[in-house]
Simulated scan of single mutants.
Amino acid sequence: MDTDENQLVGKYAKHNSPAWAKARGWRLTVYSNSLLLVMGAVFLASWWLQSVAGTVVYNAEQLEHGQPSVSWTGYVTSADFWDRTLQNWQSEFLAVGSMVTLSIYLRQRGSAESKPVGTPHEETATEAE
């Protein structure tokens, strides 16, 4: 069960738990889902940056061949964009590395990959008490 006591938040937080794990309301909700929020933002930002850079490169190639340029929307709906996106293995390595690093400080309530929300940053493993 995903209870506040299991997650070590609110009144169940330890004395050395992160401050937002001790908080109530929106701050606890944000901190409890901080890993999802940050990784989602990183994904969307990298996808958007790749789409903008890809539009520039694609339009330069179009110009070289005497073809008309396309809008950002036109590029994002093109096969070229999706081919480049799905072939981009560097983003996979960045995502895994980010997840490992960010999971030290951020939490996702109820996730088996994340330690309980109220666990202190320096604690690397949780044991049944």
Rank of each mutant, 00 (worst) to 15 (best):
G97N: 07
L44T: 02
V76Y: 04
S69Y: 00
L106M: 04
A53N: 10
Q50C: 06
L63H: 11
V100S: 05
S69N: 03
Q50L: 15
V42P: 00
G74R: 03
K115D: 02
N59A: 15
V100P: 05
S34G: 12
A60I: 01
W89K: 08
V100C: 05
G66N: 11
A53I: 05
V38N: 02
W89F: 06
S32C: 03
V52H: 09
T101L: 15
R84I: 02
P68H: 05
Q87L: 07
A45C: 09
G40E: 05
V57T: 09
R109Y: 06
G40M: 09
A60R: 15
V42F: 13
I104F: 12
V38F: 08
L63A: 15
R84H: 12
R107C: 06
A60H: 10
E61A: 11
G40A: 11
W48F: 12
V76F: 06
V96E: 08
Q87W: 08
V57I: 14
A95N: 12
T101W: 13
V38S: 05
V52R: 12
L63S: 10
A112N: 14
M99P: 00
S98G: 15
H65S: 13
Q67T: 00
A60C: 00
S32D: 07
A53T: 04
G110Q: 13
L106E: 02
L94Y: 14
S114M: 09
L102Y: 06
S51Y: 00
A112I: 09
W89P: 00
Q108V: 00
Q62H: 06
S46R: 11
Q87F: 08
D80L: 04
W47Q: 08
S32P: 08
V52E: 14
L35H: 07
T85D: 09
Q108T: 01
S111T: 04
E92H: 03
P68Y: 06
Q90M: 10
T101F: 15
Y75H: 08
E113W: 09
Q108H: 07
Q108E: 14
E61N: 15
T101R: 02
F43P: 01
Y105D: 07
L37H: 00
V56N: 08
M39N: 09
V76R: 04
N33K: 03
Q67K: 13
E113A: 13
W82N: 13
G66D: 10
H65Q: 15
E92I: 11
V96G: 10
V38R: 05
G66L: 11
Y58L: 03
A41R: 01
Q62Y: 02
Y75K: 03
Y31V: 01
V96P: 04
E113P: 00
A53Q: 12
S69K: 13
N59P: 07
V52F: 09
Q67Y: 05
P68N: 12
Q87G: 14
R84Y: 04
D80E: 14
L49M: 15
Q108K: 12
I104D: 10
A95F: 12
R84K: 14
T77K: 08
W82M: 08
R84Q: 13
S51C: 13
E61Y: 04
S32E: 07
G110L: 10
G110M: 12
S91R: 10
L106T: 01
W48Q: 07
E64D: 15
V100Y: 12
W48M: 14
S103A: 14
D83Q: 07
S111Y: 02
Y75M: 03
R109H: 03
F93R: 03
G97M: 05
L49R: 02
F81Q: 04
M99Y: 15
V70L: 15
A112G: 14
S34I: 04
